[in-house]
Amino acid sequence: MSFYQTWLPFIYLYGIGGVSFLLGTFLIFRTGALRVNDPVHKKWVWVLFYGYFFYAFIHALFIYLAIESV
């Protein structure tokens, strides 16, 4: 299997997706929409980053397992 089938889509997805995610998080933080000193909002910051890494982990795991099964 080639790089075009395995890690390139992953890098593209979490690279461009990651930039969008971080820009969005930065924007809501800068505008005061997300307040990290609010205990409820603080929990949401954890949820937001958990979601990003949860999906990245699932995708990376399956790419690794597929490569191993060759």
């Binding site: 924007l27 809501i28 929409a33 949401w44 937001l48 990003y52």
Partner: peptide
Amino acid sequence: YMNDWFFMPLFLFGWLP
């Protein structure tokens, strides 16, 4: 089904309120 998380910060704290 698994690429919808990237815009969640803007949705949850921008558009939804």
